Simulated scan of single mutants.
Amino acid sequence: MEAAPEPGPVLRLRHCGAAIFCRRPPPLCPACGRPLRGAGLAAAPVRLPCPFRHGHRQRRALLLRPAAGSFLGGYDGGADLHVGITNGDGVVYNYDEEGIHRDETGWEQCISVPLVQPDMFELLQQWDKLLEEFSVGEAWLPHRYEEHDYNCYTYALAFINSILTAQGKQQMSKSEFTEKFVIPQTKNASKYITLHQELTTKDFYIVPLPDQENQGGN
């Protein structure tokens, strides 16, 4: 089956007290009908950064993707997310009812959170070995898996905590893990998904701006 074509970029411009989102900049403002050419800097289209990354190109990172489907392929914000951790080659280690997987495909549209900074030389060298040794432990055998209490999040958090412990740092609780790694990323992604869904059925999506953001606009 051929992959669905990637959607075009989401552009934003400001005019007549509104934020206007589109795929291609129009010659006339869709809110007031006036020309946008020469309307000032605010009316210049700005490309919004896409929050999703090709997971297998992310090294030593935490990845999040929908358990089924894709973020831009009908994700409603309420479906379960699956998490994994990449090694230095972009292979995604993840845990489910079948045990540990080492995926080389299937994570092409993900939220990615880097776990290792460029100056962590020792950890950069040891990451693959630590991840593999951790993943072959009996804790991650298939029969241990429980959908709500012992799952892919448990695996990812346990590995991250093992790294923190080795560095002499304090471990994270599940709530801290969710607050730090999951919520900020999914909030940003949710806004982008809303724009993407609106622009699949219409040419423009118009949002009134608060008064303080209107200053300097037309």
Rank of each mutant, 00 (worst) to 15 (best):
S135N: 00
V116E: 07
A3Q: 15
Q170N: 15
P25K: 03
Q125H: 14
P210T: 04
Q167L: 14
D89I: 00
L36H: 04
D96R: 05
E213W: 05
W127G: 00
D203C: 09
N94W: 09
P114N: 06
G40R: 00
F71S: 06
M1F: 13
S112C: 10
T154C: 11
D128Y: 00
L141N: 05
T178L: 14
L62W: 08
R102W: 09
C22P: 02
Q215C: 13
F204S: 06
T165D: 12
L13R: 03
Q126F: 11
Y75N: 00
G77K: 03
P45T: 07
L164T: 02
T186M: 14
A139T: 03
E146N: 15
G77P: 02
I183K: 12
F177I: 01
C50M: 07
P26D: 10
I85E: 01
K202Q: 15
P118C: 05
A158D: 08
N218M: 11
A166K: 13
I85W: 03
L157R: 11
C16N: 15
L124K: 13
C16T: 13
P45K: 05
L130I: 02
Q215N: 12
V91G: 02
I100Y: 06
E147P: 08
A19D: 14
Q185D: 05
E108I: 01
Q197P: 01
P26F: 09
T105H: 12
D119V: 08
G137S: 10
G40N: 02
A42Y: 10
H56S: 04
Q109A: 11
E138P: 03
L72H: 11
R59P: 01
L195C: 05
V116S: 06
G77E: 06
K180F: 15
Y155I: 00
F181P: 00
Q171R: 11
P66Y: 12
A79S: 14
S173A: 03
I193A: 14
K129F: 11
F177W: 09
P25N: 04
P208G: 02
A189K: 08
P114S: 06
Q171K: 12
P51R: 07
K202V: 04
R57Y: 13
Q109C: 12
C50N: 06
P210V: 04
L115R: 04
N188C: 11
V136N: 00
L157C: 09
G17F: 03
Q215L: 15
K129L: 13
